[in-house]
Structures are given as C-alpha cells and as structure tokens.
C-alpha cells in the first residue's frame, strides 16, 4: 500500500511530453518534434537514444543534443531534445510514445515515463490530372561560395607561383646571372671612371707584352667614352678628326686639346698603319690622356668634384729640369714636330 502511494507520488513528480510543431506536412517537408521530460533534480534520467527513424515511415533528419535546465523553483529539472522529422509517403502516421527511464534517489529500480502518442498527417501534392505532364524540375543551383572556391584558388596560386619560380630560375641560370641581384653601384663621375680605367690599362701592361694595338684601341676607347659622358660628344661613332673638331668647340684649353690630338694621332697610326711607337711614346700617350681628363673634368657643370686624390701619372717620365720661357717655347715646338713626324709614319 505504502509503495503504491509512493509510486503515485513519484509518478506525480515526473512529466514526459512530446509535441509536434505541426501535425500536417507535405511529402518531404520537415517538422519539429520536441520531447520534454520534467523530474526532480536529484533523479537520474536515462534518455532514450534515437536512430535515423522513429518508425518505418518517419525519418529523423536532424537531432539536437539533449539539453537540461533547472526550473525556476530550483527543485525540478527539465530535459529537452528536439528532432527534425520527415516522411516521404503520404498518409497518417502515428508517432509512438517515447519511453524515458529514470531512477529515484531512494529507489534503485528503473522506472519509466512515457510521452503521449502523436499523429502526423503527410499530405501529397495536389495533382491536376487534366493538365499536361510537366518535366521534372532541374536541381536548384546552390550559390557558389568562397569556401567552396578557396581550395581551387589555393591550388591554382601554388601552381602559378611554382611555375613562375621554375621559369625565373631557368632564365637566370641560362643567363648565368645570380638569382638575387645586388643593388647596382652608383655610377662614377665620367672623369673618375676614365682615370680609373686609364690606370687599370696601365697596370694591364699590354704594350709591354706586345699587344700594342689592343693597348691603343683601349686607350682611345676610354677617351671616347669619357668625351661622350663628359661633353655629350658621340665620340665612339666619331673619327679622330671629327672628335678633334667637336673638342675644339669646347672651352678646353689648347694644351689639353693638343695632348688629346697627340693621343689620337698616335693611336690611329698604331691601329691603321701598323706603327710600333717607342716605349716612351706608349706611356706619353696614356699620360696625355690622363692630363686631358684632369684638365677638362671641371668644364662640365654636371661633373662631381673629385672626392679622393686623383691617380698620378706614375709612368717613367723623362727627367725634366726647369726651363726658361724660351726653352719652353722651343720644347712645345719640338713636341708638335714630333706629332707631325708620327703622323707621317
């Protein structure tokens, strides 16, 4: 008697319900089935587990995890699970009661609470048989999202980058260039470049090793490049006469012009008339070129001032003793004659 009374008390303390969002759906439509169970907070509840169907005809599409909350009184506990169900056959389908097992704290025996049974009506789409048969609708195009495109974009970018790197590497290798170039050195002012080149020409010892033609060719090439950079004279494409004609139009002093003339004349004789000058003449020609550069380097306003001491003409020069004015005149006259003699071969 006591147990019956107790059982009744217990029964009265729990409540299981099942509720459909709507009890009438179209074939394939979805609806929600909410299962709730209320019991005292100290009860142990064994929640039923659902597979993918409720009955053979009603399928579970989605199920939420079982949620438990306390009632406002703090005494009872509410368990809720929501199922999304559907059916693909028309008719009336009964949703059987859901059994929820629980244990009370003072009795180890498993007791069961059941929800009520529900009826779900699944209707078919009304078909007008008098109308013509229509074709099946094509699948609805889902919009292409960035998430779907992202893998393709990444793969394409990786392939493109890899291809570019391979081509870049092959080209560099073909040209025998370093993969990463060092930043270019700032261009030297024309006179500095010319003087450096003339000094390095001296140390190459070309004429000493019998390469007389190469020596004078290189010497005139340096002078031509200097004239091009310093005065804007297209000297590389000019003959010696044309160079002198252009230089004569500049404000270079007559001595400098004369020295340039001597260098070019001797070089022409060596290059085109197989002349073999005396050893002193080789060096004199180079020294004349150096002197010409030094004497004309300040003529162009774009020329930067020399930062380091200029290289000195260190070639063996003929010992010079101080000359009187008359001697100087006669000396310059003799050097002119010397030039003419060289010109005559």
């Amino acid at each position: 008697m006591i147990s019956i009374i107790l059982s009744g008390v217990t029964q009265a303390q729990t409540e299981a319900t099942a509720k459909l969002d709507t009890n009438s759906i179209l074939v394939g439509d979805q609806t929600g089935l909410e299962i709730t169970f209320t019991c005292p907070a100290d009860y142990k509840v064994i929640w039923p587990s659902f597979t993918d169907t409720i009955t053979g005809d009603i399928e579970i599409v989605k199920k939420t995890p079982t949620d438990s909350t306390r009632h406002d009184d703090g005494y009872d506990k509410l368990f809720v699970q929501r199922l999304i169900i559907t059916a693909f056959d028309s008719g009336y389908f009964a949703i059987p009661p859901v059994s929820i097992k629980y244990k009370t704290p003072d009795n180890n025996e498993v007791q069961t609470a059941e929800t009520g049974a529900l009826l779900l009506e699944v209707k078919t789409v009304p078909v007008n048989l008098e109308e013509n048969i229509k074709d099946i609708k094509p699948p609805i195009e889902a919009p292409f999202t960035l998430r779907e495109a992202l893998p393709y974009i990444l793969v394409f970018s990786a392939v493109a980058l890899l291809t570019f790197l391979v081509i870049f590497f092959i080209r560099k290798r073909k040209k025998a260039e370093p993969i990463f170039k060092a930043p270019p050195k700032p261009a030297l002012p024309p006179h500095r470049q010319a003087l450096d080149d003339l000094e390095s020409l001296r140390y190459k010892k070309l004429w000493q090793n019998g390469h007389i033609k190469e020596y004078h060719t290189e010497l005139t090439d340096i002078v031509r490049d200097y004239l091009d950079a310093q005065f804007g004279i297209d000297a590389p494409e000019y003959t010696s006469d044309e160079i002198m004609e252009a230089v004569n139009k500049t404000s270079a002093n007559p001595t400098a012009k004369q020295k340039l003339q001597q260098t070019l004349t001797l070089a022409d004789l060596v290059k085109f008339a197989k002349m073999e000058p005396l050893p002193l003449e080789h060096d004199a020609s180079l020294n004349n070129a150096i002197d010409f550069v030094k004497e004309t380097m300040h003529l162009n306003p774009t020329t930067e001032p020399a930062e380091a001491p200029l290289p000195q003409a260190v070639v063996p020069k003929v010992e010079e003793t101080p000359l009187s004015e008359d001697e100087k005149e006669s000396d310059s006259g003799s050097s002119e004659n010397k030039g003419k003699e060289a010109g005559d071969v």
Partner: peptide
C-alpha cells in the same frame, strides 16, 4: 697616305 683610316671610309 699609305694606309686607310676611318675618315677615308666615311
């Protein structure tokens, strides 16, 4: 002259 120089060519 017994030799040709670029001036001659030009």
């Amino acid at each position: 002259r017994g030799y040709v120089i670029p001036e001659d060519v030009r």
